[in-house]
């Protein structure tokens, strides 16, 4: 078999031809903001209150830093979530994520060992779930967060049935 030096220039590993990407729910961004940025904001509020009550003015810039970091985080989370994509192809599942550090994983259905669906308490409040694929390799990092519970269930069943159909051993 030939090697792959003669690839067409400009081809992008993160944009395989003929793939339409499914996006995850923007509610994932909300969840991540709740978990990541809201505590920071609370700290900022507490700091401000302390600054006012104790008239420690030097605390105000600290509070401002907290607010800035929280703002930056929630902006970042939004970008990160919009970069997550997955696509079911005929023989494999594609998962990609990241803007600065981009990553794409191809998992052939036949290699699937089992599928996990998880939803934490905050996830459930916002109605999202995470689907994680497991192959025999621990390095396979194929998890899709931020799916609606229906989509998660559909994906789980679809993956499992395709895995059965194209089963390959180790």
């Amino acid at each position: 078999m030939s090697n792959t030096t003669g690839a067409t220039p400009g081809a992008e590993p993160f944009e395989p031809p003929g793939v339409t990407w499914n996006r995850v729910s923007p509610r994932l961004a909300t969840v991540r903001r709740v978990v990541g940025a809201v505590p920071l904001l609370l700290v900022a509020v507490a700091t401000t209150v302390a600054a006012v009550l104790l008239s420690w003015t030097w605390l105000l810039p600290v509070a401002a830093v907290f607010v800035l970091v929280a703002g930056w985080l929630s902006w970042l989370v939004g970008r990160q979530v919009s970069a997550i994509g997955y696509a079911e192809r005929g023989a494999d599942l594609l998962v990609r994520r990241g803007i600065m550090w981009r990553q794409i994983v191809v998992v052939p259905y036949g290699r699937l060992q089992y599928v996990d669906v998880q939803a934490g308490p905050v996830d459930r409040i916002f109605g999202i779930a995470r689907v994680q694929l497991h192959t025999a390799s621990a390095a396979t990092d194929a998890s899709i967060a931020g799916l609606s519970p229906q989509e998660a269930a559909r994906l789980r069943d679809s993956l499992t049935s395709r895995g059965q159909a194209q089963l390959a051993g180790l």
Binding site: W101, Q103, V105, R111, L170
Partner: peptide, 11 residues
């Protein structure tokens, strides 16, 4: 024996 594969790219 390939389980899955992936590509990563930093800035």
């Amino acid at each position: 024996r390939t389980q899955s594969c992936g590509v990563t790219q930093g800035p």
